[in-house]
Amino acid sequence: MFKTWKSVAFAASAMLGLAALAGPAQAAWPERPVTVIVPWAAGGGTDATARMIAKLLQDELKQPFNVVNRTGGGGVVGHSAIAQAPADGYTIGVITIEIGTYRWLGQSDLKTSDYTPIALYNFDPGALFVAANSPVKNAKEALEALRADPKKFKLASGSSIGGAWHMAFGSLMLKAGLKPDQYTWIPSQGAAPALQELVAGGTDFAPASLPEAKSLLDAGKLRSLMVFDTKRTPGYDAPTSMEAVGQAVKAGAWRGVAGPKGMPKEAVETLTRALEKAHKSAEFRDFMTSRGFGLEWAAGAEFVKFMEQSEADCGTVLKAIGLAKN
């Protein structure tokens, strides 16, 4: 019954709307404001980059791009909202690496094919930390200690169970021949509480990104052992995993722009072009590098491939950690 109600109301409003819009012929996308859904909270890293992108798109396409935060459930709520939005090009969103984990963790059925991936714009490598008073001095010692006695140490997941940093640390362990499921992982709300727990002595090792740990590194409460990347992050003295333990790993968190499945071709093309221009602009580059966000680019089919690869990788790591349900 509710359905009929809704459709009657819809028909009525559609007529109202048609009468109003009947004037000019179909103009080019975007002809009205676009909503940008962010699955993470206002004030966080994803939110910050999304707002910058929205501003640049707005400057380029001359329509407001409004950032809307839809938080909760480790990003499931926001990612679902993007996938279920009307595919008219007027709702897009920022998606993050977690999209590749929900299916494995049994949290949601979301997958790459539920989206129209537009472009990848950022990658932040994870890094490994110990408290300043830890007996472990460098990454080599850390891995040796972990190998020698898996039951002795408590590892922070650095995020919720199966989150980005949890997987980043897990994939390094896999490369180095350690078995992630032999260890006790302590989950947390995010990087800040995980690092606090590490300083408080509740855990022995914690993964997070370098910028997230900057304040505590500066305070001399933490030591960074290595960054899970193939190149060093400027401004930090953490060695790459290759330099530290001889394992080339690139693991961390990524962010990209996507819309719901079946977006109009014209909108996708215009948006991709505008995003590419924004990504190349000095304003965006300055903003990203000065805040410690890594730049990355992949658009269209290339981004689809990247997402599928990421989803598969997430599955491998989550299985190794012992979290994958299927």
Binding site: T71, G72, G73, V76, V77, A81, L105, G106, Q107, S108
Partner: peptide, 14 residues
Amino acid sequence: GYPRFTFGYFELTG
């Protein structure tokens, strides 16, 4: 890490 009492409704996962 498990969706509890959500009755398949994605908003409730939050």
